[in-house]
Lab assay of single mutants.
Amino acid sequence: SDFTIRIGDRTLHLKNVSEEILKILEELLRRGIDFEELRKIVEELIK
């Protein structure tokens, strides 16, 4: 499924993301992860 994360004025667009990855990202966001850290993790996950 497609997913968009907005943190402040920044946006991260994800396409064809599995439910498992979404759950991980949601947990990281709940813990207050930094946007740049989140972006790096996402890039690793979707390689």
Results as ranks from 00 to 15, higher is better:
residue 26 E to V: 13
residue 40 K to V: 11
residue 14 L to N: 00
residue 16 N to E: 03
residue 11 T to A: 04
residue 6 R to S: 09
residue 3 F to G: 01
residue 38 L to V: 06
residue 14 L to G: 00
residue 39 R to W: 14
residue 42 V to N: 01
residue 22 L to Y: 10
residue 47 K to M: 14
residue 45 L to C: 03
residue 43 E to S: 10
residue 3 F to D: 00
residue 24 I to P: 05
residue 35 F to I: 04
residue 44 E to N: 13
residue 32 G to Y: 05
residue 46 I to Q: 13
residue 36 E to L: 06
residue 44 E to F: 15
residue 30 R to L: 11
residue 3 F to I: 14
residue 3 F to T: 03
residue 2 D to E: 04
residue 30 R to D: 04
residue 10 R to S: 07
residue 11 T to D: 02
residue 44 E to S: 11
residue 37 E to I: 09
residue 2 D to C: 12
residue 5 I to H: 01
residue 11 T to Y: 06
residue 20 E to C: 03
residue 9 D to F: 03
residue 21 I to G: 09
residue 23 K to R: 13
residue 36 E to S: 08
residue 18 S to W: 01
residue 5 I to R: 00
residue 44 E to K: 10
residue 7 I to V: 08
residue 18 S to I: 02
residue 22 L to A: 10
residue 38 L to M: 11
residue 20 E to I: 05
residue 31 R to T: 08
residue 38 L to Q: 01
residue 23 K to S: 12
residue 42 V to Q: 02
residue 2 D to K: 00
residue 39 R to N: 12
residue 23 K to G: 13
residue 31 R to D: 06
residue 42 V to P: 00
residue 39 R to T: 13
residue 2 D to H: 01
residue 28 L to F: 13
residue 11 T to I: 11
residue 42 V to F: 05
residue 26 E to W: 15
residue 29 L to Y: 07
residue 16 N to I: 04
residue 41 I to K: 09
residue 4 T to K: 06
residue 13 H to Q: 07
residue 46 I to W: 13
residue 8 G to T: 00
residue 20 E to T: 09
residue 35 F to E: 04
residue 12 L to N: 00
residue 47 K to D: 10
residue 36 E to N: 11
residue 12 L to F: 12
residue 47 K to E: 07
residue 23 K to W: 13
residue 18 S to L: 01
residue 10 R to F: 12
residue 32 G to I: 05
residue 42 V to A: 14
residue 41 I to R: 10
residue 45 L to Y: 09
residue 4 T to Q: 06
residue 15 K to N: 04
residue 29 L to V: 08
residue 36 E to V: 09
residue 23 K to I: 13
residue 23 K to A: 14
residue 34 D to Y: 05
residue 22 L to W: 13
residue 4 T to G: 01
residue 9 D to P: 05
residue 40 K to W: 10
residue 19 E to F: 14
residue 35 F to Q: 03
residue 30 R to A: 10
residue 30 R to F: 11
residue 12 L to V: 03
residue 21 I to K: 08
residue 3 F to L: 10
residue 8 G to W: 02
residue 42 V to R: 00
residue 7 I to Y: 04
residue 24 I to K: 13
residue 42 V to H: 03
residue 33 I to R: 07
residue 34 D to F: 06
residue 18 S to K: 06
residue 1 S to N: 11
residue 10 R to P: 00
residue 36 E to K: 06
residue 26 E to R: 15
residue 19 E to R: 10
residue 36 E to C: 07
residue 42 V to G: 04
residue 5 I to N: 00
residue 35 F to C: 02
residue 40 K to H: 13
residue 34 D to K: 11
residue 22 L to V: 15
residue 43 E to M: 12
residue 10 R to A: 07
residue 17 V to A: 05
residue 35 F to H: 04
residue 35 F to Y: 10
residue 31 R to A: 08
residue 16 N to K: 04
residue 21 I to A: 12
residue 10 R to G: 03
residue 8 G to D: 03
residue 27 E to M: 15
residue 38 L to A: 01
residue 19 E to L: 11
residue 27 E to W: 15
residue 21 I to H: 15
residue 41 I to C: 08
residue 27 E to V: 15
residue 23 K to N: 11
residue 45 L to T: 06
residue 32 G to D: 10
residue 37 E to H: 10
residue 13 H to F: 13
residue 12 L to S: 00
residue 7 I to R: 01
residue 30 R to Q: 11
residue 30 R to T: 11
residue 31 R to Y: 07
residue 1 S to C: 05
residue 43 E to Y: 15
residue 36 E to Y: 13
residue 34 D to W: 04
residue 46 I to F: 15
residue 14 L to E: 00
residue 37 E to Q: 12
residue 14 L to P: 00
residue 19 E to P: 15
residue 47 K to L: 11
residue 13 H to W: 05
residue 1 S to G: 11
residue 42 V to M: 06
residue 7 I to C: 10
residue 5 I to Q: 00
residue 5 I to V: 07
residue 4 T to E: 09
residue 29 L to D: 02
residue 7 I to D: 02
residue 43 E to C: 07
residue 12 L to I: 08
residue 47 K to P: 14
residue 9 D to T: 13
residue 17 V to D: 02
residue 13 H to C: 11
residue 12 L to R: 00
residue 33 I to H: 08
residue 41 I to A: 07
residue 7 I to S: 02
residue 23 K to F: 13
residue 3 F to R: 02
residue 33 I to L: 12
residue 13 H to T: 12
residue 27 E to P: 08
residue 26 E to H: 15
residue 33 I to P: 08
residue 3 F to A: 03
residue 6 R to D: 05
residue 32 G to H: 09
residue 11 T to W: 03
residue 42 V to E: 01
residue 28 L to T: 06
residue 33 I to N: 07
residue 24 I to W: 06
residue 38 L to H: 02
residue 4 T to W: 03
residue 1 S to M: 14
residue 20 E to G: 09
residue 38 L to C: 03
residue 8 G to K: 03
residue 7 I to M: 06
residue 15 K to C: 03
residue 38 L to P: 01
residue 35 F to P: 06
residue 27 E to H: 10
residue 15 K to H: 09
residue 20 E to Y: 15
residue 44 E to R: 11
residue 42 V to S: 12
residue 46 I to P: 05
residue 47 K to F: 14
residue 25 L to P: 00
residue 14 L to T: 00
residue 14 L to A: 01
residue 21 I to W: 10
residue 1 S to H: 15
residue 33 I to M: 09
residue 31 R to H: 07
residue 8 G to V: 01
residue 37 E to G: 09
residue 33 I to D: 06
residue 18 S to A: 03
residue 41 I to S: 07
residue 34 D to C: 02
residue 7 I to F: 06
residue 28 L to P: 02
residue 34 D to L: 09
residue 26 E to C: 12
residue 1 S to W: 13
residue 16 N to F: 04
residue 30 R to I: 09
residue 18 S to Q: 05
residue 39 R to H: 10
residue 40 K to R: 15
residue 28 L to K: 06
residue 19 E to I: 13
residue 7 I to W: 08
residue 25 L to R: 00
residue 43 E to A: 13
residue 6 R to P: 01
residue 11 T to P: 00
residue 38 L to D: 01
residue 18 S to E: 04
residue 43 E to K: 07
residue 9 D to S: 08
residue 28 L to S: 07
residue 47 K to Y: 14
residue 9 D to L: 05
residue 41 I to G: 03
residue 40 K to S: 11
residue 10 R to W: 13
residue 5 I to W: 01
residue 46 I to N: 14
residue 22 L to F: 09
residue 20 E to H: 08
residue 23 K to V: 13
residue 45 L to Q: 06
residue 42 V to D: 01
residue 38 L to I: 09
residue 28 L to V: 09
residue 4 T to F: 06
residue 14 L to C: 01
residue 37 E to V: 11
residue 3 F to M: 09
residue 39 R to S: 11
residue 3 F to W: 04
residue 38 L to K: 01
residue 18 S to G: 05
residue 32 G to Q: 12
residue 31 R to N: 11
residue 16 N to T: 02
residue 18 S to T: 09
residue 24 I to F: 10
residue 34 D to M: 10
residue 46 I to V: 14
residue 11 T to Q: 04
residue 34 D to H: 07
residue 6 R to W: 02
residue 26 E to A: 15
residue 40 K to P: 06
residue 14 L to S: 00
residue 40 K to F: 13
residue 37 E to A: 12
residue 6 R to A: 10
residue 37 E to D: 09
residue 38 L to G: 01
residue 33 I to A: 10
residue 39 R to E: 13
residue 6 R to C: 10
residue 18 S to D: 08
residue 27 E to I: 12
residue 29 L to R: 04
residue 32 G to C: 12
residue 43 E to N: 10
residue 19 E to D: 12
residue 29 L to A: 05
residue 36 E to H: 08
